[in-house]
Amino acid sequence: MSRRYDSRTTIFSPEGRLYQVEYAQEAISQAGTAIGILSTEGVVLACEKKFTSKLLDNDGSAEKLYILNDNMICAVAGMTADAGILINNVRVQAQQYLKTYNEQIPCELLIKRICDVKQGYTQHGGLRPFGVSFLYAGYDDRYEFQLFTSNPSGNYSGWKATSIGANNSAAQTLLKKDYKDDLSLKDACNLAIKVLSKTMDASSLNSDKLEFATLSLSKLEKGKTVRKIWKDEEIDLLIKESGVLDEKKDDDE
């Protein structure tokens, strides 16, 4: 039945649905899980690497984590080629605002602008929606630390903790159960590891299968953010200290 209505993004089905947007969201559900957690000291982003190879030389750079400007980082789930186009657009928007007003762009304003671009690709013939969702971690003077997510339709929303990608519903259930408003940054990191350990398809948990990033405030310079994409050895140490590996052993026994 859907074949009559899914050839273009400009055609609504009798139920009022845009099938092309739903197809884009289905592509995202096949991607690795990405989790964002807001804490009192910052924001944590953690991603599952769906495909890994020992032959891949990425110079330590992250595949699903990107720095947008001095105050924002993001994680992606879906088609990374589509994500690259949108991330370049975000960076240009952020720098234009900084050049014009001599201050960093507010987080929600930047997200709104890129969501306007995404929404435009759902209403013009000859275009297809971007097959990628984002988790945005940001900081500004008005609302301090913030966590947002956006999808191919152009919708965005703010969260305390959320996930995108594969096993999304299972991750959301675990986050609802264990999230607390007074989490420290370290506690949020441990929670992210715990959730990923239970939702990832992989049998073992290590830095080959994870990417990790945090956004926090500098202890030396007031109001300056610290954007950190973690190295492999730091991720392995975090996994070890979190006690997740011991829990998995007990479950196996």
Rank of each mutant, 00 (worst) to 15 (best):
K176Y: 05
T199H: 07
A171P: 02
S184D: 03
N168D: 05
A171Q: 10
A166L: 06
S169I: 04
M200Q: 06
L196C: 01
L175V: 07
K198I: 00
N167H: 11
A171G: 15
A192F: 03
S197W: 06
A202P: 00
T173P: 00
L185T: 11
T173F: 12
L183W: 06
I193A: 00
K198W: 00
K198M: 03
L191M: 14
D182G: 08
N167S: 07
T199K: 00
L183P: 03
Q172C: 07
T173E: 11
D178T: 12
M200K: 01
L183F: 11
K176H: 14
S204Q: 06
A188M: 13
S204E: 10
D178S: 07
L185Q: 12
M200T: 06
S169P: 01
K180F: 03
N190G: 12
I164G: 01
K180D: 11
D181S: 15
S203G: 00
K194F: 03
N168Q: 04
L183K: 08
A171H: 06
L191A: 12
L196D: 01
D201A: 10
K176V: 07
D181P: 02
K177R: 15
K194L: 03
V195W: 04
I164H: 10
K186N: 14
C189A: 15
D201Y: 09
L191G: 08
S184F: 07
D181R: 13
L174V: 04
C189R: 09
N190A: 14
S203A: 12
A171R: 11
Y179T: 07
K198Q: 06
K176W: 08
L191K: 08
V195R: 04
S204Y: 01
D182C: 07
D178W: 09
L191V: 00
S197M: 03
K194T: 05
S197E: 06
L183M: 13
N190E: 15
I164R: 10
N167K: 13
D182N: 14
A166T: 12
A171W: 11
S184K: 13
K180V: 11
G165T: 01
K198D: 04
A188H: 14
T173K: 09
C189N: 08
S203W: 07
K177T: 15
K198N: 02
A192W: 05
K194V: 01
D187R: 14
A192I: 02
A202M: 00
K177I: 10
S169D: 12
K176L: 06
N167A: 11
L196K: 05
L196R: 08
T173I: 04
N168Y: 02
K194Y: 12
K198R: 09
Q172E: 15
A171S: 15
N168T: 09
K180L: 10
Q172R: 15
L175Y: 09
C189T: 13
S169C: 04
K177V: 05
Y179C: 05
K177W: 03
D182R: 03
A202K: 14
L183D: 04
L185E: 05
K176S: 14
T173M: 11
A166C: 14
K194M: 12
M200R: 01
A166D: 11
N167Y: 01
L175C: 05
L175S: 07
V195I: 13
A170C: 11
L196Q: 00
D201F: 09
T199Q: 05
I164T: 10
L185A: 11
N168W: 01
Y179V: 03
A188Q: 03
I164V: 14
D182W: 01
L191I: 09
A166M: 13
L185C: 06
Y179D: 02
